[in-house]
Amino acid sequence: MRKTITTLAAAVTLTGIFAGGASAATYEVQKGDTLWSISQNHGTTVEQLKTWNELSSDLIFPTEQLEIDGQKNKEHYTVAPGDTLWDISKKYRVTVNELKDWNNLKSDIIHPGDSLYFQTVEHSKSETIKTNIINKKTIAAKPVQSKANANTSDNEMTVTATAYTAFCKGCSGVTATGQDLRANPDQKVIAVDPKVIPLGSKVYVEGYGTAVAGDTGGAIKGNKIDLFIPSTSDALDFGVQTVKIKILN
């Protein structure tokens, strides 16, 4: 379970994290706070904070109580032989990155018998995906897939991924499609080869989440992508990885 870090600039209220697994750690919003600053202080993401607190925008107010560890609605899954984080993330409609964050995983390696914790997620008022674990069997309520989206296999591929930041020397921070990444560091953007992935496409990237194909690069040719990561050190640590992607539109 993620431990809460209290800084001099932020007051954190803990409310019964271990009380039957039903309560959660909460944070009282301070003047000047943003979802981005709170996510960085507490080792989570803006997307997770918005999901856990059912926020439809990034707007927050002083004295507002935010759940910061996602303990509410936490379920667990026992890893079966042949399971991968990619398979489990698709089954529960979460991202590989979220699974790794919730379970403090440093790599994609999992083993049969491992217990993985995850959150039930509400995607919209009319579409709620809720998963219950009963005797280690999964019963999932899934939305009916439209005919237009029924065949997505042609949109899946394996690519080589690197990472970049908007704060490198000589970088403007503005993408090929006009997105200002310095002013909006919480955006999920990837650089692509437009001949392979059209600019403006929404793309699910294993371990990164859903991003917009909003940038290009001289070295990004063929089945290669470049992930925008705000932190320079995190971008360097990412290195070169092979990931699966799915073009959503």
Rank of each mutant, 00 (worst) to 15 (best):
P143K: 05
N135D: 08
V144C: 07
I134N: 03
I134D: 01
D154P: 04
T160A: 00
E156F: 08
V144N: 10
A141C: 07
I139S: 05
T138Q: 00
P143M: 06
I134E: 01
K147L: 15
T162E: 08
S153T: 15
T152P: 04
T152N: 09
I139G: 05
I139Y: 03
Q145D: 09
V159N: 03
N151M: 11
N149E: 14
P143L: 07
A148F: 09
P143I: 09
N149F: 11
I134W: 01
Q145R: 06
T131C: 02
T152D: 10
A161V: 03
K136H: 02
E156S: 13
M157W: 02
A150T: 11
N149Q: 10
I134Q: 02
K136N: 03
Q145T: 12
T152H: 08
E156T: 14
N151C: 09
T131I: 07
N155V: 11
V159D: 06
K137P: 02
K136C: 00
I133S: 01
V159M: 04
N151S: 12
A140W: 01
E156K: 14
I133T: 10
T131P: 05
T162G: 04
K142T: 14
P143F: 08
T160W: 00
D154N: 09
A140F: 04
S146L: 14
I139L: 10
A141S: 11
N135Y: 00
T158N: 11
A161F: 01
A140D: 12
Q145N: 10
D154A: 11
S146F: 13
V159L: 04
K147M: 12
N135T: 02
K142E: 14
N135A: 03
A150Q: 13
P143D: 11
A150N: 06
A141G: 13
T158I: 12
N151K: 11
S153Q: 15
K147P: 13
N135C: 01
N132A: 09
Q145Y: 04
K136W: 00
N135W: 01
I139C: 04
T160D: 05
M157A: 08
N135V: 02
M157V: 06
I139E: 09
N135F: 00
N151V: 14
P143G: 08
D154W: 04
A161N: 04
N135H: 01
I139F: 04
I139M: 05
A148L: 13
T138W: 02
T160V: 04
V159E: 06
V144L: 10
V144E: 14
N132E: 13
T152I: 06
A150R: 08
A140E: 14
K137Y: 00
V144H: 10
V159G: 07
N149C: 10
T158F: 06
A141L: 14
M157N: 07
P143S: 07
S146I: 12
A148V: 15
K147G: 15
I133G: 03
A150L: 09
N132L: 08
T162Y: 04
T162H: 05
A140G: 08
I139H: 03
T162R: 03
